[in-house]
Amino acid sequence: MLAHVRSAFALSNGTYGSPRMTRELQDEGFAIGRRRTAWLMR
């Protein structure tokens, strides 16, 4: 999952925050919440 977060963040040119990143991951089929996403992004 961390690899997906890193690649999506890189593709967004560093503009995705945790809410948008959460939606992106959920669209890819991951069951993840905003707080977990924010923790991974840190």
Rank of each mutant, 00 (worst) to 15 (best):
W39I: 02
D27Q: 00
G17D: 13
E24H: 14
E24N: 11
E24V: 08
E28F: 03
M1F: 03
G17L: 12
G17P: 06
D27G: 00
T15L: 14
R36Y: 08
M21L: 09
L25R: 05
T15R: 14
R35E: 05
R36E: 10
L40K: 10
R6Y: 08
F9M: 13
S12A: 14
F9L: 13
L2Y: 07
F9H: 11
L11Y: 06
R36M: 13
L2K: 07
D27P: 00
G29H: 07
L25I: 05
S7K: 12
S12K: 12
R42E: 04
E24K: 08
I32V: 14
F30L: 11
N13F: 02
S7Q: 14
G33P: 06
A8G: 09
L40S: 06
S7N: 11
H4R: 03
F30H: 07
H4W: 03
R36D: 09
R34G: 09
P19M: 14
L2E: 12
R20F: 07
H4I: 02
Q26G: 07
H4A: 09
Y16L: 15
F9K: 11
V5W: 05
Y16T: 10
R34I: 10
L2N: 10
R6F: 02
S12V: 11
Y16R: 13
R23C: 12
A38E: 15
H4E: 08
S18Y: 03
V5F: 01
M21I: 04
T37R: 06
Q26A: 05
R35P: 01
